[in-house]
Structures are given as structure tokens and as C-alpha cells.
Design a protein around this nucleic acid. Structure first.
Length: 243
DNA sequence: AGTAGTGTTCGGCC
DNA sequence: TGGCCGAACACTAC
């Protein structure tokens, strides 16, 4: 569920509820008083990276699915929903997710240009942010949500394989052209991810993530927990160059 | 049946 | 003060 493109799919899937009034709200979340949503109209649904945003007039509900979260539209799971929103026609249910009520204007807290899925994505900004911490490993940089909001571990592994860069390369050691390629491919792969996910064929297109053998060199893929993020990283020692 | 992972936050410890 | 690390959270596919 969690990576940015999956949140875009959710956003598209709930469009029918845009402008509709919540006739009943319930759920097990203790982060805020759910009853205050009752009777309120959903102004819009937005997303920023892995954040799903349900916008009301004076506040916004932020949903983050972490590793295990899920949702159902017009149906329910057996488990208790963290948040349940009933509309005149249909319902939205969110499970095992992190919820928050945001009362500050979204523009004050979200840098929309950092969202790889956004129309306002700004590659130049990302590049500038990368230059600021040259000692950061590329495997960590890609997971930095302030630079590449929406990029998750699958996208990280696939992007580095595509551009043939070793995950332990320091950002500052990457030639500028290669750094630009990193930024460009983070977005490109995210949109490929989106298209494949919509067709339920994402896994089929993985080249390195969870793979045993490198499709280029036909040698064993290395699996290690790397970087400060210490996340599962799959890479090929031969075709992914360490700069 | 047990394990591990598409993620983040928080508290404790240097 | 701040960086680092492990725990916690909680679900489910393999």
C-alpha cells in the first residue's frame, strides 16, 4: 500500500466523495475526536508523498498507512476501522493507519514541489537539496521524504538499478549528470509504478527488488540492509557502479 | 506456523 | 543539543 503512487490511486478512487457531506463518522482512533467530522463536507482529497489528505473547511485529516495500513471503499473489513466515514451514498474505511488532524494551512507545512507525483514537482529543488548533504548515501537520499516525497523502498531499489548506481555511493561523489538522472528517474519510475499498479502487474516489472539474479549480468543479486535508513536493499555488484 | 516487510515516530542513550 | 538505535505499532503474504 504505502508508496506515493498507491496514494494517488486512492485519491482517484475516492473522487465520488468530493464535495459530499459526512453523515456519520466513527472509528477507534484516539488522535482526535472523530465526531467533529460529522456533518462536515469534504472539500477535497489531496496527497503529498505517502500522506493522504481529507480536506474539510477549517482542517484536514491526514492518513498515513505506514507499513500495514489499508482502506476499503463502500465495503468493510472484519477488523475495526481506525476511521469510518459514512456518506449518503457510500462509505470510506481506513484500517491500521496513522491519523492526524491538521489545523494549520496545508501550504504552510507541505512543500508540494517535493512530491514526486505532483504537477508542481520541481527537479531543480530536489537537486539543490541533494547538494546540501554530499556525504549522504544515495540509498538514504532517495528515501528522504523532504527531497523525494512518495518514494519508498521498492522505488529506491528499482531506480538505482535503472541508473546503474551502487546504493552506497555518496551523493557528492555522483557526477552532476548522474545526479540529474537520479532525480529524473525517481519521478519516471514512480509514474511507471503507478501505471503498473493500476493494472495489478507491479511485481511483474521488478528487475532487482526481491530478485535473486541480476537480469543484466545473470549473477547473484546482493541483499543487504544499508544506510542510516537500514532498509532492505537489492543490487548488483557488477552493473551498479560505485562512484 | 513463522517470518519479514511498500514506514514512521518516539524515547533512551551516549 | 543532537545523532543514532532499537522498540513499538499491527497486518498479511509467502
Amino acid at each position: 500500500m504505502p508508496e506515493g503512487p498507491s496514494i494517488v490511486i486512492l485519491k482517484e478512487a475516492v473522487q465520488a466523495f468530493r464535495g459530499k457531506k459526512v453523515i456519520a463518522a466513527s472509528g477507534s482512533t484516539k488522535k482526535f475526536d472523530v465526531s467533529r467530522l460529522t456533518g462536515k463536507k469534504v472539500i477535497d482529497f489531496k496527497s503529498w508523498g505517502k500522506h493522504f489528505l481529507i480536506c474539510f473547511d477549517k482542517f484536514t485529516v491526514r492518513v498515513h498507512f505506514l507499513l500495514f495500513g489499508s482502506y476499503r471503499i463502500n465495503e468493510q473489513k472484519d477488523s475495526t476501522a481506525r476511521l469510518h466515514l459514512a456518506f449518503t451514498k457510500g462509505e470510506l474505511n481506513f484500517y491500521a493507519c496513522s491519523l492526524a488532524l491538521i489545523e494549520t494551512p496545508l501550504d504552510d507545512i507541505y512543500d508540494w514541489s517535493a512530491d514526486v507525483m505532483s504537477d508542481t514537482w520541481n527537479a531543480g529543488n530536489a537537486l539543490k537539496k541533494l547538494q546540501k548533504s554530499p556525504a549522504t548515501l544515495v540509498c538514504d537520499a532517495l528515501l528522504d521524504q523532504t527531497i523525494f516525497a512518495g518514494v519508498g523502498n521498492i522505488i529506491k531499489n528499482e531506480v538505482l538499478f535503472r541508473i546503474r548506481v551502487h546504493p552506497e555511493t555518496e551523493v557528492g561523489n555522483l557526477p552532476l549528470a548522474k545526479r540529474k538522472e537520479l532525480v529524473k528517474e525517481a519521478v519516471q519510475y514512480s509514474f511507471d509504478f503507478l501505471a503498473w499498479k493500476k493494472n495489478f502487474e507491479l511485481k511483474k516489472h521488478w528487475l532487482i527488488h526481491t530478485k535473486q539474479t541480476c537480469p543484466r549480468d545473470h549473477i547473484p543479486v546482493i541483499k543487504k540492509y544499508l544506510g542510516k535508513t537500514n532498509r532492505r536493499t537489492f543490487y548488483c555488484e557488477r552493473c551498479q557502479k560505485k562512484y
